[in-house]
Design a binder for these strands. Structure first.
Lengths: 143, 143
DNA sequence: TTGCGTGCAAAGGTTTTGCATGGCA
DNA sequence: TGCCATGCAAAACCTTTGCACGCAA
C-alpha cells in the first residue's frame, strides 16, 4: 500500500508530530489537542481517517490496553524490519523497544518448532516495565 | 480477592458457560445471546459487572484486539500458575496455549538481564496462528 | 428483615458515517 | 476543472451509572 492521495497540511502536521515523537504514544484526543495548541488544528475525523491509513500502511502502530480499552498510536521507525523482531512496550511510559538480538530471534523459531505456533510480530507486544520506570517506582516507594 | 457476595443463578450460569468452554473466548454480546437461547437469560449489565469481578479475581482474562478494539473474555484454568508463564493466543480461533517449558521460562530472564525490562505475563499475549488454523488456511488456499 | 444483586433506562465515551464544502493537482 | 480531503453533525457502538425492585442469607 502506498500513499496515492493529495498532500495536505493536515496530513503533514499529523505525521510530523508522530515522527518527531516516535518514543511516545498518543491518543486521538491527545493528538487533536496538541495540534490545536501547538501547530495547526485538525478535525477529529481527519485524525481518525489518517491514522487508519498510517496503521494499514505500517507507519504507525495502534495499541489498545486490555484493561482500559484506550487506543494509542505510535510512529514506527524502520517499519520493514519490525515484522522480523518482537517488541517490548512499557506500561508506564509507553516506550517501545525493538528486540533484535540473536536470543530473541530464536524465540519465534522455538515456538514454531516446539509448540507448532506461528507468532505474528506485527500484532504481538510484550508488556511490562522498562528500566527507567522501574527505578522511578523503586525510588518513590511504589507510588 | 475472594467471592464474598450472594450466590445467584445469574452468576452461576455465566461462570458455567465460561468454565465449560475454556478453550473459547466470548464477547459480552455473545455471552448474553448464548445465555438467552441456551440456558438462562441474564441482563447485559449483570454480565458486565460479573465479568469485571471475574477479571479482577483472575478467573477470567480479558483480551482486546488492537485492530478492532473488540473485547473478549476467556476462562483461565489454573490461574495461579499463569503469572509465571507466557501465553500464546490464536488470532483465528481464540485458542489459548499456556507456555510452561524451560526454554520459554528463560525468555523473561533474558529480557530482564539483557534488556533491563520486566515482562508482565498477566498483561502479555503472544499472538499468531495455531497449528490447526494454519493447516486449515493452507487447505483452503488462504481463504 | 437486611442489604447486595439485578436489569432497565439513561448517560458517557469513542469511533464511524453522511454530506456539503474546501483545496490539491 | 475534477476529484479527493476535510470537518461538522449525526449515528452507531460499547460500557458505565442511577435507581427501583428482587432475592439470597
Amino acid at each position: 500500500m502506498s500513499e496515492t492521495g493529495y498532500k495536505t497540511k493536515q496530513k503533514a502536521v499529523i505525521l510530523d508530530l508522530l515522527k518527531n515523537n516516535c518514543d511516545r504514544e498518543f491518543t486521538v484526543d491527545g493528538l487533536v489537542e496538541l495540534l490545536k495548541s501547538e501547530s495547526f488544528a485538525v478535525g477529529r475525523t481527519t485524525v481518525y481517517r489518517y491514522l487508519d491509513y498510517l496503521v494499514k500502511n505500517g507507519d504507525v502502530r495502534k495499541f489498545v490496553s486490555d484493561s482500559t480499552r484506550q487506543a494509542t498510536f505510535q510512529y514506527i521507525e524502520h517499519k520493514h524490519e519490525c515484522e522480523e523482531h518482537m517488541h517490548l512496550k512499557c506500561i508506564k511510559c509507553g516506550k517501545l523497544i525493538h528486540l533484535s538480538c540473536d536470543f530473541m530471534n530464536g524465540v519465534s523459531e522455538h515456538i514454531l518448532s516446539h509448540h507448532n505456533f506461528r507468532i505474528d510480530n506485527a500484532k504481538t507486544t510484550l508488556l511490562g516495565i522498562c528500566e527507567d520506570c522501574y527505578r522511578e517506582e523503586a525510588t518513590n516507594g511504589g507510588h
